[in-house]
Design a protein around this nucleic acid. Sequence first.
DNA 1: CTAAAGCTTGACGCCGGTGACAAGGTCAAG
DNA 2: CTTGACCTTGTCACCGGCGTCAAGCTTTAG
Lengths: 122, 122
Amino acid sequence: MRIGELARRVGVSTRALRYYEQRGLIRSRRSANGYREYDESDVRIVTEIRELMSVGFTLEDARPFVDCLRSGHPSGGSCPESVAVYRRKLAEIDREIRDLLARRAEVAAQFADACPGCLSRA
Amino acid sequence: MRIGELARRVGVSTRALRYYEQRGLIRSRRSANGYREYDESDVRIVTEIRELMSVGFTLEDARPFVDCLRSGHPSGGSCPESVAVYRRKLAEIDREIRDLLARRAEVAAQFADACPGCLSRA
DNA sequence: CTAAAGCTTGACGCCGGTGACAAGGTCAAG
DNA sequence: CTTGACCTTGTCACCGGCGTCAAGCTTTAG
């Protein structure tokens, strides 16, 4: 299939697909006229990328998952490198949550300080 | 005082101060040679800006606080507009925390799905 | 035959808050 | 006079993930 159909099937723009290719996450065969050609394995890969991105992974984070799928694994997350990314992302998220909680407390404190009584009426 | 001294006193770069001015958050008088001139009220304003930024406020978020100080209030956070920003930021932070918690759960679920047994050994 | 839809590469824009550089003016000390 | 510290404006670069044009191909439908 060509880029437009792939885009439609996985729900991304053609621009995004070309960008993924430029970043080395997907590859394309070219037909005689220069058009990109894709198959079902590409659908699988892009789907995996979008699933990961939907939970906050970056494209770089997704790379090991793509490699894992390409190497024949049925799941992109079963390779050691992917597992490492999962653990790292969980740790990152945990840290961000802690930071946000701390910031929330600081803001509330500044607020209470600057405007006594305001917080209780919020 | 000139920009270098102000920068040193509040612990920001001169570049940042010019940027704040460009964004309309601080103002400067100019001496005959074109150098920016500041006084204690500017020290106060920039200090307020940095305090707010240190807890994640953007420059735009800081604007009502600056206006509040300029209008003569001893605290930048006591004006209604500033209070509104405080409330909005608290709500934003709360939403971000909820999103992160939800994302964390999704990541953990994907992880558990892709690699059964991995999470428990984490 | 033509128009429309789809494809190609290339390049700029965005957002926030600067850092870093260029190319100059100013001013006090030695 | 010169050096060096300080000041000026202006501009490019960054990061991520694209959106959006531009200008030109191919293919398909009518």
